[in-house]
């Protein structure tokens, strides 16, 4: 007899749908108006895009195993958002340059993380935590209290607005779908993806079967940094303003989104679809609690409890007796 099991991404999406349907009954929910309901659902997915992209790098480092985690993602987001903001200065033709700067700066920071982790054998948790402090320091120096800049109209057009007046799908969601497809190619259809899962499962066997563990590991952290940099570029395109604490609130939710999506925090198993589902669930819960006008204390407690319940359902590790 087959044991009943449900894959985490599916469970997360089901949970999101149930929660969303229930939220219609709230006093200030969408009620019986189907158009309002669709608009609300679209908006929640649009908000989830930013968390989802930032959590992409997190997914990669977590799959790579060996306690892989990137605690510098939040501060990289802030840094590249600020760099984009001051580079673009409201001009459309500087947008590509700003995107390039965001990716390169993110990748550089990720590369330094990777160097520390692979060559100096510093645990990823503390290496990226320390790096997060250094990047925050850099932000304070660059920022010097205030920055002057502006996002370009084309960024707002491409990130914050819908596809066209007739098709009310926000561009951000379309970007995310393409991004998700690329991540799937990377994880499931590329040699890099194969090596990534291999080192996540067992580094010794990976090495024996010819995987260059050090290079793969270094590449993972570099890529994760670049993806966080891309996240910063997107976030500033959406908000249009920058501040020192812009990226930090994305950090732990990015890890939670990965965990909720069923990627094992111990590495070797996971998917980006799961992370996308996790990002939607977390964004949904947060925005529901906000619309319910709960005090901050209750909001945090409900978020913590939901997270505990979700990981209790399918985040359990193998018992010793098995």
């Amino acid at each position: 007899m087959r044991k009943f099991s449900i894959s985490p991404p599916v469970a997360a999406i089901l949970l999101a749908i149930v929660l969303f349907l229930l939220s219609g009954f709230l006093p200030n929910g969408y009620g019986s108006d189907i158009n309002v309901a669709i608009a609300q659902a679209t908006n929640i997915v649009r908000l989830a895009v930013f968390l989802g992209v930032i959590a992409a790098g997190q997914t990669l480092v977590i799959i790579s195993g060996f306690e892989g985690i990137d605690l510098s993602a939040g501060s990289v987001v802030t840094l590249t958002a600020i760099l984009t903001y001051v580079t673009v200065k409201g001009e459309d033709d500087k947008v590509l340059l700003a995107l390039l700067i965001s990716l390169v700066v993110g990748a550089l920071i990720g590369f330094v993380n990777g160097l520390g982790i692979t060559f100096l054998k510093i645990s990823p948790f503390v290496m990226t935590l320390g790096m997060s402090g250094v990047v925050t320091g850099l932000i304070i120096i660059i920022n010097h209290g205030n920055v002057s800049g502006k996002v370009a109209p084309i960024m707002t057009r491409l990130i914050a607005r819908p596809l066209s007046p007739d098709i009310p799908i926000p561009n951000a969601i379309i970007i995310w779908i393409i991004f998700g497809f690329l991540m799937w190619l990377l994880l499931e259809r590329s040699t890099f993806g194969k090596h990534l899962f291999a080192i996540g499962v067992n580094r010794v066997t990976a090495k024996l079967s010819g995987v260059n563990v050090t290079a793969t590991n270094l590449a993972v952290y570099t890529l994760a940094g670049a993806l966080a940099g891309f996240g910063g570029f997107l976030v500033v395109g959406n908000t249009g303003v920058v501040f020192i604490a812009l990226g930090q609130p994305f950090l732990f939710p990015s890890i939670a989104a990965v965990a909720v999506g069923g990627t094992l925090l111990s590495g070797g198993k996971g998917s980006y679809w799961g992370t996308m589902a996790g990002a939607i669930v977390l964004t949904l819960i947060t925005s529901l609690l906000t619309t319910m006008q709960m005090p901050d204390s209750v909001r945090r407690m409900v978020l913590g409890a939901t997270l505990l319940v979700m990981i209790s359902i399918y985040g359990r590790q193998r018992g010793f007796r098995q």
């Binding site: 985690i69 732990f252 890890i255 939670a256 965990a259 094992l264 925090l265 111990s266 005090p295 901050d296 204390s297 209750v298 909001r299 945090r300 407690m301 409900v302 978020l303 913590g304 409890a305 997270l307 505990l308 990981i311 209790s312 985040g315 359990r316 590790q317 193998r318 018992g319």
Partner: peptide, 30 residues
């Protein structure tokens, strides 16, 4: 309880409970 008996991953479990605890502290003293 969650980590040892339910075998959940420590980092994400204590991250979740940190929300519970700080939320509770805010509940006591907003």
């Amino acid at each position: 309880f969650f980590i040892a008996f339910l075998r959940l991953q420590p980092i994400i479990t204590t991250y979740a409970t940190s929300f519970l605890y700080v939320g509770f502290a805010l509940f006591i003293l907003p």
